[in-house]
Protein backbone atom coordinates (compact mmCIF):
# COMPACT_ATOMS: atom_id res chain seq x y z
CA UNK A 1 0.00 0.00 0.00
CA UNK A 2 1.44 3.40 -0.97
CA UNK A 3 1.68 6.22 1.54
CA UNK A 4 -0.72 8.25 -0.63
CA UNK A 5 -3.30 5.47 -0.49
CA UNK A 6 -2.76 5.22 3.27
CA UNK A 7 -3.26 8.95 3.74
CA UNK A 8 -6.65 8.71 2.01
CA UNK A 9 -7.84 6.66 4.99
CA UNK A 10 -7.61 9.88 6.99
CA UNK A 11 -10.87 10.78 5.23
CA UNK A 12 -12.62 8.35 7.60
CA UNK A 13 -11.17 10.17 10.56
CA UNK A 14 -12.10 13.60 9.17
CA UNK A 15 -15.65 12.38 8.51
CA UNK A 16 -15.89 11.14 12.10
CA UNK A 17 -14.63 14.47 13.43
CA UNK A 18 -17.15 16.37 11.29
CA UNK A 19 -19.96 14.22 12.66
CA UNK A 20 -18.66 14.90 16.18
CA UNK A 21 -18.72 18.68 15.55
CA UNK A 22 -22.13 18.51 13.88
CA UNK A 23 -23.67 16.42 16.67
CA UNK A 24 -21.77 18.33 19.39
CA UNK A 25 -20.30 15.10 20.77
CA UNK A 26 -17.13 16.91 21.86
CA UNK A 27 -14.95 14.03 20.72
CA UNK A 28 -12.83 15.92 18.14
CA UNK A 29 -9.86 16.39 20.40
CA UNK A 30 -9.82 12.78 21.54
CA UNK A 31 -10.19 11.52 17.97
CA UNK A 32 -7.34 13.76 16.82
CA UNK A 33 -5.03 12.62 19.64
CA UNK A 34 -6.01 9.01 19.08
CA UNK A 35 -5.33 9.26 15.34
CA UNK A 36 -1.93 10.85 15.78
CA UNK A 37 -0.91 8.46 18.57
CA UNK A 38 -1.95 5.32 16.75
CA UNK A 39 -0.24 6.45 13.53
CA UNK A 40 3.02 7.28 15.30
CA UNK A 41 2.98 4.16 17.51
CA UNK A 42 2.26 1.82 14.62
CA UNK A 43 4.77 3.41 12.24
CA UNK A 44 7.40 3.36 14.98
CA UNK A 45 6.79 -0.30 15.81
CA UNK A 46 6.93 -1.04 12.05
CA UNK A 47 10.43 0.37 11.84
CA UNK A 48 11.49 -1.28 15.11
CA UNK A 49 10.24 -4.65 13.89
CA UNK A 50 11.98 -4.17 10.55
CA UNK A 51 15.24 -3.52 12.40
CA UNK A 52 14.82 -6.48 14.77
CA UNK A 53 13.93 -8.86 11.96
CA UNK A 54 17.09 -7.85 10.14
CA UNK A 55 19.47 -8.10 13.08
CA UNK A 56 17.84 -11.24 14.58
CA UNK A 57 19.40 -10.53 17.96
CA UNK A 58 17.74 -12.16 21.02
CA UNK A 59 18.33 -9.16 23.29
CA UNK A 60 16.07 -6.97 21.14
CA UNK A 61 13.39 -9.63 21.26
CA UNK A 62 13.58 -9.76 25.05
CA UNK A 63 13.53 -5.97 25.24
CA UNK A 64 10.47 -5.52 23.08
CA UNK A 65 8.52 -8.21 24.95
CA UNK A 66 9.52 -6.66 28.29
CA UNK A 67 8.24 -3.28 27.14
CA UNK A 68 4.99 -4.89 26.00
CA UNK A 69 4.51 -6.57 29.40
CA UNK A 70 5.43 -3.39 31.27
CA UNK A 71 2.97 -1.23 29.36
CA UNK A 72 0.26 -3.89 29.60
CA UNK A 73 0.69 -4.26 33.36
CA UNK A 74 0.69 -0.52 33.93
CA UNK A 75 -2.41 -0.09 31.82
CA UNK A 76 -4.34 -2.92 33.50
CA UNK A 77 -3.32 -1.65 36.97
CA UNK A 78 -5.08 1.64 36.24
CA UNK A 79 -8.32 -0.31 36.78
CA UNK A 80 -7.32 -0.72 40.42
CA UNK A 81 -6.33 2.71 41.70
CA UNK A 82 -4.99 2.72 45.23
CA UNK A 83 -4.17 -1.01 45.31
CA UNK A 84 -0.54 -1.03 46.27
CA UNK A 85 1.61 -3.70 44.67
CA UNK A 86 -0.92 -4.67 42.02
CA UNK A 87 1.31 -3.62 39.06
CA UNK A 88 4.02 -6.18 39.63
CA UNK A 89 1.46 -8.87 40.36
CA UNK A 90 -0.22 -8.21 37.03
CA UNK A 91 3.18 -8.09 35.31
CA UNK A 92 4.13 -11.42 36.85
CA UNK A 93 0.84 -13.01 35.76
CA UNK A 94 1.25 -11.75 32.21
CA UNK A 95 4.91 -12.78 32.08
CA UNK A 96 4.08 -16.30 33.25
CA UNK A 97 1.30 -16.56 30.69
CA UNK A 98 3.64 -15.35 27.95
CA UNK A 99 6.39 -17.80 28.93
CA UNK A 100 3.97 -20.73 29.06
CA UNK A 101 2.41 -19.81 25.71
CA UNK A 102 5.70 -19.30 23.93
CA UNK A 103 7.20 -22.35 25.61
CA UNK A 104 4.37 -24.45 24.28
CA UNK A 105 4.24 -22.94 20.80
CA UNK A 106 8.01 -23.19 20.33
CA UNK A 107 8.53 -26.41 22.26
CA UNK A 108 5.94 -28.28 20.21
CA UNK A 109 7.25 -26.71 16.99
CA UNK A 110 3.92 -25.08 16.31
CA UNK A 111 5.62 -21.87 15.22
CA UNK A 112 9.13 -21.15 13.99
CA UNK A 113 11.53 -19.66 16.54
CA UNK A 114 11.97 -16.39 14.66
CA UNK A 115 11.03 -12.83 15.68
CA UNK A 116 8.52 -12.74 12.78
CA UNK A 117 6.40 -15.28 14.65
CA UNK A 118 7.36 -14.64 18.25
CA UNK A 119 6.74 -10.88 18.37
CA UNK A 120 3.26 -10.66 16.80
CA UNK A 121 2.02 -13.72 18.69
CA UNK A 122 3.49 -12.39 21.95
CA UNK A 123 1.84 -9.03 21.32
CA UNK A 124 -1.53 -10.68 20.86
CA UNK A 125 -1.10 -12.92 23.91
CA UNK A 126 0.06 -10.04 26.12
CA UNK A 127 -2.66 -7.73 24.81
CA UNK A 128 -5.34 -10.29 25.58
CA UNK A 129 -3.83 -11.00 29.00
CA UNK A 130 -3.89 -7.25 29.69
CA UNK A 131 -7.61 -7.00 28.96
CA UNK A 132 -8.32 -10.04 31.13
CA UNK A 133 -6.18 -8.69 34.00
CA UNK A 134 -7.91 -5.29 33.85
CA UNK A 135 -11.34 -6.93 33.90
CA UNK A 136 -10.30 -9.18 36.76
CA UNK A 137 -9.04 -6.45 39.10
CA UNK A 138 -12.01 -4.25 38.34
CA UNK A 139 -14.50 -7.05 38.98
CA UNK A 140 -12.64 -8.23 42.07
CA UNK A 141 -13.12 -4.80 43.65
CA UNK A 142 -16.80 -4.74 42.76
CA UNK A 143 -17.34 -8.25 44.09
CA UNK A 144 -15.63 -7.41 47.38
CA UNK A 145 -17.72 -4.27 47.64
CA UNK A 146 -20.97 -6.11 47.08
CA UNK A 147 -20.06 -9.19 49.14
CA UNK A 148 -18.70 -7.38 52.20
CA UNK A 149 -21.30 -9.01 54.44
CA UNK A 150 -20.51 -12.51 53.18
CA UNK A 151 -16.78 -12.05 53.63
CA UNK A 152 -17.24 -10.71 57.17
CA UNK A 153 -19.46 -13.65 58.14
CA UNK A 154 -16.74 -16.03 57.00
CA UNK A 155 -14.03 -14.06 58.79
CA UNK A 156 -16.07 -13.93 61.99
CA UNK A 157 -16.38 -17.72 61.84
CA UNK A 158 -12.58 -18.00 61.77
CA UNK A 159 -12.00 -18.34 58.02
CA UNK A 160 -8.52 -17.92 56.56
CA UNK A 161 -7.98 -15.17 53.99
CA UNK A 162 -8.16 -17.71 51.22
CA UNK A 163 -11.39 -19.26 52.54
CA UNK A 164 -13.02 -15.86 52.99
CA UNK A 165 -12.13 -14.73 49.47
CA UNK A 166 -12.69 -18.00 47.60
CA UNK A 167 -16.18 -17.36 46.23
CA UNK A 168 -15.43 -13.77 45.37
CA UNK A 169 -12.28 -14.82 43.51
CA UNK A 170 -14.14 -17.50 41.60
CA UNK A 171 -16.79 -15.03 40.47
CA UNK A 172 -14.21 -12.45 39.38
CA UNK A 173 -12.20 -15.04 37.40
CA UNK A 174 -15.35 -16.19 35.64
CA UNK A 175 -16.33 -12.64 34.81
CA UNK A 176 -12.92 -11.74 33.40
CA UNK A 177 -13.06 -14.69 31.00
CA UNK A 178 -16.51 -13.98 29.57
CA UNK A 179 -15.35 -11.78 26.63
CA UNK A 180 -12.70 -14.31 25.60
CA UNK A 181 -15.14 -17.21 25.75
CA UNK A 182 -17.86 -15.24 23.94
CA UNK A 183 -15.55 -14.23 21.13
CA UNK A 184 -14.36 -17.84 20.87
CA UNK A 185 -17.96 -18.91 20.30
CA UNK A 186 -18.73 -16.36 17.60
CA UNK A 187 -15.38 -16.09 15.85
CA UNK A 188 -15.78 -16.47 12.08
CA UNK A 189 -19.55 -16.00 12.34
CA UNK A 190 -19.66 -12.43 13.60
CA UNK A 191 -16.21 -11.09 12.97
CA UNK A 192 -13.20 -12.17 10.95
CA UNK A 193 -10.35 -11.63 13.35
CA UNK A 194 -7.57 -9.14 12.64
CA UNK A 195 -4.77 -11.58 12.15
CA UNK A 196 -6.70 -13.72 9.68
CA UNK A 197 -7.93 -10.67 7.78
CA UNK A 198 -4.38 -9.35 7.62
CA UNK A 199 -2.98 -12.60 6.28
CA UNK A 200 -5.72 -12.93 3.65
CA UNK A 201 -5.24 -9.32 2.52
CA UNK A 202 -1.49 -9.92 2.33
CA UNK A 203 -2.16 -12.80 -0.07
CA UNK A 204 -2.05 -15.89 2.16
CA UNK A 205 -4.20 -18.92 1.51
CA UNK A 206 -7.43 -18.48 3.59
CA UNK A 207 -7.20 -22.03 4.95
CA UNK A 208 -3.64 -21.38 6.12
CA UNK A 209 -4.82 -18.07 7.66
CA UNK A 210 -7.62 -19.92 9.44
CA UNK A 211 -5.14 -22.39 10.93
CA UNK A 212 -3.20 -19.57 12.50
CA UNK A 213 -6.38 -17.98 13.69
CA UNK A 214 -7.44 -21.19 15.42
CA UNK A 215 -4.05 -21.22 17.09
CA UNK A 216 -4.66 -17.68 18.31
CA UNK A 217 -8.17 -18.37 19.57
CA UNK A 218 -7.06 -21.43 21.53
CA UNK A 219 -4.04 -19.74 23.01
CA UNK A 220 -6.13 -16.70 23.94
CA UNK A 221 -8.49 -18.87 25.93
CA UNK A 222 -5.59 -20.59 27.62
CA UNK A 223 -3.81 -17.35 28.35
CA UNK A 224 -6.98 -15.71 29.68
CA UNK A 225 -7.51 -18.58 32.11
CA UNK A 226 -3.88 -18.64 33.24
CA UNK A 227 -3.62 -14.86 33.67
CA UNK A 228 -6.87 -14.55 35.55
CA UNK A 229 -6.33 -17.49 37.91
CA UNK A 230 -2.73 -16.59 38.60
CA UNK A 231 -3.64 -12.99 39.27
CA UNK A 232 -6.44 -14.09 41.58
CA UNK A 233 -3.97 -16.17 43.60
CA UNK A 234 -1.41 -13.36 43.70
CA UNK A 235 -3.78 -10.54 44.55
CA UNK A 236 -6.64 -11.71 46.79
CA UNK A 237 -4.61 -11.06 49.93
CA UNK A 238 -4.37 -7.37 48.95
CA UNK A 239 -8.07 -6.97 49.71
CA UNK A 240 -7.52 -7.86 53.39
CA UNK A 241 -5.32 -6.31 56.05
CA UNK A 242 -2.64 -8.19 57.96
CA UNK A 243 -5.18 -8.75 60.73
CA UNK A 244 -7.66 -10.30 58.27
CA UNK A 245 -10.08 -7.41 57.97
CA UNK A 246 -11.50 -6.05 54.74
CA UNK A 247 -9.46 -3.14 53.46
CA UNK A 248 -11.53 -0.09 52.49
CA UNK A 249 -11.58 0.12 48.69
CA UNK A 250 -10.36 3.50 47.42
CA UNK A 251 -12.83 5.38 45.28
CA UNK A 252 -12.33 5.82 41.56
CA UNK A 253 -13.12 2.45 40.01
CA UNK A 254 -12.88 3.07 36.32
Amino acid sequence: MTLLALSFTLLFVIATMLISVWQKLGLEKEIATGTIRSAIQLLAIGYVLQYIFRTEHVIYLVMIISVMIGVAAWNAARRAPGMRGIVWRIALSILTTELLMMGMLLGLNIIEPTPQYIIPLSGMTIGNAMVVAGLYVNQMRREVQSSKGEIEVLLSLGATASQAMQDVRKRAVKFSMIPTIDSMKTVGLVQLPGMMTGMIVAGADPVEAVRYQILIVFSFTGSAAITSMLLSILSYRLMLTKELQLRPIPEGTR
Binding site: G149, E152, V153, G158, L244
Partner: peptide, 20 residues
Protein backbone atom coordinates in the same frame (compact mmCIF):
# COMPACT_ATOMS: atom_id res chain seq x y z
CA UNK B 1 -3.55 -15.12 65.03
CA UNK B 2 -6.81 -13.23 64.30
CA UNK B 3 -8.28 -16.40 62.84
CA UNK B 4 -7.78 -18.36 66.07
CA UNK B 5 -8.99 -15.37 68.05
CA UNK B 6 -12.28 -15.31 66.10
CA UNK B 7 -12.72 -19.04 66.60
CA UNK B 8 -12.91 -18.31 70.30
CA UNK B 9 -14.60 -14.91 70.21
CA UNK B 10 -17.38 -14.89 67.67
CA UNK B 11 -19.44 -11.89 66.56
CA UNK B 12 -23.05 -12.36 65.44
CA UNK B 13 -24.24 -9.32 63.47
CA UNK B 14 -27.63 -7.67 63.74
CA UNK B 15 -28.07 -7.88 59.97
CA UNK B 16 -28.03 -11.60 59.27
CA UNK B 17 -26.16 -12.32 56.04
CA UNK B 18 -26.73 -15.71 54.49
CA UNK B 19 -23.91 -17.33 52.55
CA UNK B 20 -24.74 -18.70 49.09
Amino acid sequence: DPRLWRKEICYVAQQAVMLP
